[in-house]
Amino acid sequence: MFRDIRQRLLASAVTIVLASFVSFVVLRALPGDPARLIAGPLAGPETLAATRSSLGLDRPFFAQYGQFLWNFVRGDWGYSFSVGDEVREALTSRLTATLELALYAFVLAVVGALVCASVASFRPGFRRGLVRLFALVGLGSPPFWVGLVLIVVFSSYLGWWPGPSGRLSPQLYPPEPVTGFYTVDFALHGDLIGVSDSAAHLVLPVVSLALLPWAFLTRLLTANMADTAGQPYILVVRSKGVPAWRTHVRHVLANSLLPTVSSCGLILATLITGSVLVETVFNWPGVGAMLTEGISAQDFALVQSFILLSAILYVVGNLVGDAVNRMIDARLRTPGAAR
């Protein structure tokens, strides 16, 4: 068991280092000259040279990479010239915005999937067809386009929710940061107007972001529940006189959760990717727009640090997902079950 854990941790570390290396190489392969972009069109050769050396671009490749890893571990993530701020500052202030969006979308997707899958797999009929249709539509929708349509319909035309005006109506001040989540921070300060305003701004982006993972989870869970429902032990439970709906939730759902739980890491990755697109549409001040701009400007420090960070997140998410799986399912605990 310990050997297994050690191996897994080692593999995770390898994954993280490789991912950071790939990002390092790819970023440097991008066409362009960041020094020219920073120093501007009027800069002379001395300024260009000084800019290059302050970026560390005049040093050998592996020295640059080693320096980057070492600095990252020490907590010095460098300076982002495209934002004009320290990378740590830029990422942390913006990451909370992305996380608030992503977490609400995550909750919405998971809860929505649990409810819809339970309803759809309960018995065939109209409801099943409806859920299935929506899931298909959800799976086929590019998030940036859904965002656009939602804005046109619910903001422009119906005026129910604010359109793409960021996290807050412009006349409100952001709350004193505690968690960085506006809804939570406003609630902590007891500002109800703030809570409802920031929540209203969340509705459309959360829905556009949650649609794809919701559809994915709903389909996965429904398929698994339909499988489980056909198992003999469910018949046994039913024959003991447990009501149908109760059986469905307590036994069928509970026994079908495993693949859903283990796919949560993947879902989180989808949400981060999706946020890149959704944030642009809703003018959400998260990391998404900053990163696309960063790639475009070859802002090495910014993009590298983020990719390293998200690789760590992904790996940790996977480890946690596995651990949860093992806790739920005794079969996986046998040593050597996983190669």
């Binding site: 490789l18 392969a29 990717t273 890149v276 993009v303 990719i307």
Partner: peptide, 24 residues
């Protein structure tokens, strides 16, 4: 499998984007 996992650990769209830009 190590590079496979490394690629999977990337935000997919960002990687595809970076590669596409790198190749022009």
């Amino acid at each position: 499998m190590a590079p496979m996992n490394a690629v999977l650990a990337f935000p997919q769209l960002l990687l595809a984007m970076a590669i596409a830009i790198a190749l022009g």
